[in-house]
């Protein structure tokens, strides 16, 4: 592992499609931490994050043919796989929890920022940037990006017109972008 191999993204994708074990090791060594961070920001549980990261790499392995370079960078594709897998895990877990105490489904309209932002993870990644946004923008990004709700679901949840939700999210994203640089 001492030898720092470098591939162009095109070479890397080609090797990943050939199921080249070294390429997957390279992928892990270079991107696992970034993906781990993204998952952790969503599930905010170390054990669960391990499981999801494993699932993400298996998904990359299985679905690498579906990666379309014209639609974006490899990392963007992997990041979205990680986000989707993390949200799916979170939902299946809260579904299991809701079976126990029937609270999520019934009290969905009482969700507050304190309920949805997990302690401890708000100092990393996008969450840290999110801190700098206004409260009303922050909760929308939280629900849309970290919880995976559709704009329609958020509109219903927050009792806001759909257009307002869309505009606020767009504005929040534009600000986020400025903060990333």
């Amino acid at each position: 592992m001492a030898i720092a191999l470098t591939y162009t993204e095109q070479e890397l994708v080609s090797l990943l499609r050939n199921r080249d074990n070294k390429a997957y090791a390279y992928l892990y060594d270079n991107y696992a931490s970034a993906l781990y961070s993204i998952i952790l920001q969503i599930v905010s549980d170390g054990e669960l994050t391990n499981d999801v990261l494993q699932e993400v790499f298996v998904n990359i392995w299985r679905r690498i043919e579906q990666y379309d370079a014209t639609k974006g960078r490899l990392f963007t594709w992997m990041m979205n796989i990680a986000r989707n897998a993390a949200i799916d895990t979170l939902r299946s877990r809260s579904y299991q929890n809701s079976r126990k105490n029937q609270s999520i489904g019934e009290n969905v309209d009482t969700i507050r920022v304190t309920d949805v932002i997990q302690p401890g993870v708000d100092t990393i990644g996008l969450r840290k940037v999110l801190e700098k946004l206004k409260e009303e923008q922050r909760i929308l990004i939280e629900l849309a990006y970290f919880k995976g709700y559709t704009h329609e679901e958020i509109a219903e949840l927050e009792k806001l017109p759909l257009g307002t939700v869309k505009t606020r999210i767009r504005n929040a994203l534009i600000q986020l972008r400025g903060l990333l640089k």
């Binding site: 781990y36 494993q54 990041m79 990644g125 940037v129």
Partner: peptide, 18 residues
């Protein structure tokens, strides 16, 4: 930008996971 930010704010998974 997003990729660089994500790599800059990376969190290392447990070593055994690799």
């Amino acid at each position: 930008d997003l990729e660089q930010h994500a790599i800059a704010s990376a969190v290392a998974p447990p070593a055994s996971l690799r």
